[in-house]
Simulated scan of single mutants.
Amino acid sequence: MKKIINIEEFNELIRSRRSIYPAQYSGEKVNDLIIEQMLENANWAPNHKHTEPWRFIVFTDKGLDQLGKFQSDIYQQVSKAKGSFDQAKMETLRNKPLMASHVIAIGMKRDEKQSIPVEEEISAVASAVQNMQLTASAYGVGCYWGSGGITYMKEAKNALGLEEDDKLMGFLYVGMPKEGFWPEGKRNPMNDKVNWVTG
Rank of each mutant, 00 (worst) to 15 (best):
K3G: 09
K3H: 12
K3E: 08
N6K: 01
N6L: 03
N6P: 00
E8G: 07
L13M: 09
R15E: 15
S16C: 07
R17Y: 10
R18Y: 10
S19L: 01
Y21F: 12
A23F: 09
Q24K: 12
S26D: 10
S26C: 03
G27V: 02
E28A: 10
V30G: 10
V30Y: 04
V30K: 10
V30N: 11
E40R: 04
A42T: 06
A42V: 01
P46W: 00
N47Y: 04
N47Q: 09
N47M: 04
N47R: 03
H50E: 10
H50N: 14
H50C: 09
E52T: 08
P53C: 09
W54F: 12
W54V: 02
F56A: 02
F56K: 00
F56R: 04
I57K: 10
I57N: 11
K62L: 11
G63C: 10
D65Q: 13
K69S: 13
K69M: 12
K69I: 14
S72M: 08
Y75E: 00
Y75W: 14
Y75M: 08
Q76D: 14
Q77H: 12
Q77A: 14
S79K: 08
K80I: 15
K80L: 13
A81W: 07
S84R: 12
F85C: 15
Q87I: 14
Q87C: 01
A88M: 05
A88K: 08
K89F: 15
K89T: 14
M90D: 15
M90C: 15
M90Y: 11
K96P: 00
K96D: 02
P97H: 13
M99L: 11
M99Q: 12
S101Q: 10
S101F: 07
S101E: 05
I104H: 03
K109R: 08
D111H: 13
K113S: 14
Q114L: 11
S115W: 00
S115A: 15
I116M: 03
P117N: 01
V118E: 08
V118Y: 04
E119D: 09
S123C: 11
A128G: 01
Q130Y: 07
N131M: 07
N131S: 14
M132I: 01
M132A: 14
Q133T: 14
Q133N: 13
A138Y: 04
G140D: 07
G140M: 05
G140W: 08
V141I: 09
V141C: 05
G142I: 00
G142V: 05
W145E: 12
G146T: 05
S147L: 07
G148S: 04
G149N: 02
I150P: 06
T151R: 06
Y152E: 13
K154R: 13
E155K: 06
K157P: 05
N158D: 04
L162Y: 09
E164Q: 14
D165F: 06
K167C: 03
K167T: 10
M169E: 00
M169Y: 11
F171M: 13
V174G: 02
M176P: 00
M176D: 00
P177V: 01
K178L: 12
K178T: 13
F181L: 13
W182Y: 06
G185A: 13
R187P: 10
N188T: 04
N188C: 01
M190V: 12
N191C: 05
K193N: 06
K193V: 05
W196G: 00
G199A: 11
G199C: 05
